[in-house]
Amino acid sequence: MYFSIIIPVYNRPQEVDELLESLCKQSYTNFETLIIEDGSDKSCKNIVDKYIDRLNIRYYYKENSGQGFSRNYGFERAEGDYFVVFDSDCIIPPHYFETVNRFLLEHPVDAYGGPDRAHPDFTPVQKAISYAMTSPLSTGGTRGNKKHVGIFHPRSFNMGISCEVYEQTGGYRITRMGEDIEFSIRIIESGFSTALIENAFVYHKRRSNMIQFFKQLHFFGRARINISRFYPNKVKFIHFLPALFTLGIIFFFSLPFWNLSLFKLLSVPFLAFIALILFHASYKNKSLNIGILSVVAVFTQLTAYGIGFLQELWTKTRK
């Protein structure tokens, strides 16, 4: 199996360095790497040049068009049997392509995805954010979970498609605001098979502080409504949960001014949720500090997504 790795990059040369270094350590090496510089001001060309003798790598610079169309740019130039998409802020464990190759030989599918994890060297904040995005106690539990409801939808931070999938679908139709969700839906509706490869995980850095994380999840919330413009029936009840949580938080903290007894009653499930996150995250990461940060990260995740979701929903209904 020959793989083509497509990595769109925008002003993140240091992340590319770490990602390429991890690709040099792969136990399965039958792949090429295409770096697509999407109109960056901070070029990673000098970083890529460091790996010319260590990887089968090609560098392309193009005008800024967003990550979806930058991936298409890479697909057009890829030569592999499978096109593998990574975000530039990922680190790939050494067994990744060996795991994927073995799975695809035993269980041929047209598209696959893998989960993400926190690397041991990540900062406490990054580990807390990773917990929020992958925990069963938040909406992140639907990502990379074999027990999730319905057909598995790969996500572009860690996914692969056969060259036939690209040839038939034409790749990404939109370049931002939920482009990976739209593409996954279209892959499945075109009759292609998908699968989660549980051990094909990546270490995903995401954002390094809560403000950046809030902005990212706010955008994700808006993106879910944007997808409904293409697929109205793809907004499920689960997608409304962060918005309901956000409205609940607003209602909860407005209660003391007019109904103290109801505030005390509702405090029980609210505090129980906090305690559950604190215990689970602390136990999973063997750190009370990360547990506390995880509480902040989960609340940031849910409220940011909820606000973005509600704002975009309001904008859509007014048009």
Score class of each variant (00 low, 15 high):
residue 279 F to N: 09
residue 169 T to E: 04
residue 157 F to Q: 08
residue 151 I to Y: 03
residue 233 N to P: 00
residue 95 H to A: 10
residue 89 D to F: 05
residue 85 V to R: 07
residue 30 N to V: 11
residue 212 Q to S: 08
residue 35 I to Q: 02
residue 127 K to A: 02
residue 176 R to E: 13
residue 7 I to N: 11
residue 139 T to S: 12
residue 74 G to R: 05
residue 284 K to Y: 12
residue 140 G to M: 08
residue 282 S to V: 09
residue 23 L to G: 11
residue 240 F to M: 15
residue 214 F to K: 06
residue 93 P to L: 02
residue 23 L to V: 03
residue 10 Y to V: 08
residue 49 D to C: 11
residue 63 E to V: 12
residue 21 E to Q: 15
residue 188 I to A: 02
residue 83 F to Y: 15
residue 34 L to H: 06
residue 186 R to I: 05
residue 35 I to C: 02
residue 70 S to I: 03
residue 237 F to Y: 15
residue 279 F to C: 04
residue 123 T to E: 02
residue 252 F to W: 15
residue 273 F to L: 12
residue 186 R to T: 11
residue 64 N to E: 13
residue 309 F to W: 07
residue 181 I to R: 15
residue 207 R to Q: 11
residue 14 Q to H: 15
residue 213 F to H: 12
residue 228 S to N: 03
residue 150 G to N: 02
residue 311 Q to S: 12
residue 62 K to P: 07
residue 284 K to G: 05
residue 170 G to E: 07
residue 236 K to M: 12
residue 137 L to S: 05
residue 275 A to G: 11
residue 265 L to N: 00
residue 4 S to F: 09
residue 299 F to D: 06
residue 121 D to E: 13
residue 151 I to D: 10
residue 199 N to L: 12
residue 65 S to N: 11
residue 249 I to Q: 13
residue 186 R to D: 11
residue 245 F to L: 15
residue 167 E to R: 15
residue 129 I to S: 01
residue 174 I to P: 00
residue 83 F to T: 06
residue 167 E to Q: 13
residue 312 E to F: 01
residue 257 F to V: 12
residue 146 K to H: 09
residue 274 I to F: 14
residue 219 F to V: 10
residue 126 Q to F: 04
residue 296 V to S: 10
residue 302 L to H: 14
residue 120 P to Q: 05
residue 297 A to W: 12
residue 124 P to C: 02
residue 276 L to W: 15
residue 228 S to K: 04
residue 16 V to D: 06
residue 137 L to E: 01
residue 253 F to K: 13
residue 50 K to T: 11
residue 266 L to E: 12
residue 182 E to G: 03
residue 243 A to W: 00
residue 10 Y to N: 06
residue 87 D to P: 05
residue 97 F to E: 07
residue 68 G to K: 06
residue 114 G to W: 04
residue 1 M to C: 01
residue 198 E to W: 01
residue 284 K to F: 04
residue 295 V to H: 05
residue 24 C to R: 14
residue 161 I to L: 11
residue 140 G to F: 08
residue 259 N to P: 07
residue 160 G to V: 01
residue 300 T to M: 13
residue 119 H to L: 01
residue 106 E to H: 06
residue 114 G to E: 00
residue 263 F to S: 08
residue 29 T to F: 05
residue 128 A to T: 02
residue 161 I to M: 08
residue 94 P to Y: 03
residue 193 S to F: 04
residue 319 K to Y: 00
residue 215 K to R: 13
residue 180 D to Y: 03
residue 194 T to Q: 09
residue 144 G to V: 05
residue 305 Y to L: 14
residue 107 H to D: 06
residue 318 R to G: 00
residue 90 C to H: 01
residue 230 F to S: 05
residue 161 I to G: 05
residue 135 S to C: 04
residue 167 E to C: 02
residue 274 I to Y: 10
residue 47 I to H: 04
residue 173 R to W: 07
residue 131 Y to C: 03
residue 250 I to K: 13
residue 316 K to Y: 01
residue 230 F to K: 01
residue 82 Y to K: 08
residue 127 K to V: 00
residue 95 H to V: 04
